[in-house]
């Protein structure tokens, strides 16, 4: 009996129920999300794709606690979300690495600011620096790094804080194709090994299918969930997966949904 209860809690590790978000502007109220419900299982990755301005980032801001829903409930691990917290790390679309701190100090920021004794996390810093391949740049300032390197600092900083959930808002949007592929592979490995729950927003369908255990296709504002697709490919995955016909078929399917909706809009 208890076991079943536990499993269902893990099934709804992140859950949004009938969430509506309305912004009041001088020219009237704008409903960005209406009646959205979604669930993410513990240790799974959900990718959200949709046209720009469809409210993807708003979903992320609601889960991270930067925004409060107009109606509906948002729960993480059974508890309602009341504000931002270190259990939910956010990797923003924009560069949010602190430029006044070195790479190492950026990674140390989270544990330090929470007042966790140094000996509990000192080893973690080098571990994650190595994982993202920045060990040689540990004492450099962000301005000395390229865009891709900064993004890796951002991700490593989020990881060092040992969150249960990673919320990522088009983190690789500004990267070139080569770097992006490396970063995707790294992210897959990192999130798979540590069994992190991940919500990943992107407008790149291929990226969504490659990273996600599920893909949520959204339509234009007020956003609705058009379709939720389960991605069957087992993890760990390799870049070569992208060339397989099943992968491409799924990519085309999502593409078709988005195109159809765009025509109606």
């Amino acid at each position: 009996m208890r076991r079943i209860a536990d499993e269902s809690a893990d099934d709804k590790f992140i859950s949004l129920e009938n969430v509506t978000k309305t912004f009041t502007t001088p020219s009237g109220a704008i409903t960005v999300l209406s009646n959205i419900s979604l669930q993410v299982k513990k240790g799974k990755t959900l990718c959200i794709v949709g046209p720009s301005g469809c409210g993807k980032t708003t979903i992320l801001n609601l889960i991270s606690g930067f925004l409060a829903p107009t109606s509906g409930s948002i729960r993480v691990d059974g508890r309602p979300v009341r504000g931002p917290g270190p259990d939910r790390a956010v990797v923003f679309q924009r560069d949010s690495v602190f430029p006044w701190l070195t790479v190492r100090q950026n990674l140390e920021y989270g544990p330090k600011v929470q007042g966790i004794p140094r000996k509990e996390w000192a080893g973690r810093i080098d571990e994650y620096l190595n994982k993202v391949g920045l060990q040689d740049c540990a004492n450099h300032y962000p301005k000395q790094l390229s865009g891709g390197m900064k993004k890796r600092v951002d991700i490593a900083r989020a990881y060092t804080n040992r969150p249960d959930i990673l919320l990522m808002d088009e983190p690789f949007g500004s990267l070139d194709v080569m770097t992006k592929e490396v970063m995707q592979q790294d992210l897959l490995e990192l999130s798979y090994k540590d069994q992190k729950s991940l919500i990943f927003i992107t407008h790149d369908i291929e990226e969504a299918v490659f990273l996600g255990d599920g893909v949520l296709v959204m339509t234009r504002s007020p956003a609705n969930i058009e379709k939720e697709i389960e991605v069957p490919f087992p993890k760990p995955r390799h870049v070569s997966l992208k060339l397989q016909p099943e992968f491409q078929a799924m990519r085309k399917e999502i593409d078709a949904i988005l195109k159809r909706k765009d025509l109606h809009a």
């Binding site: 931002p84 917290g85 270190p86 560069d95 602190f98």
Partner: peptide, 21 residues
């Protein structure tokens, strides 16, 4: 504001945000 949001999601308190960000 992205720095302040980042600090908040990394666990910084309001006062801490003023001192560290």
């Amino acid at each position: 504001p992205v720095y302040i949001q980042a600090a908040r999601s990394l666990g910084a308190s309001e006062t801490n945000i003023y001192l560290t960000v």
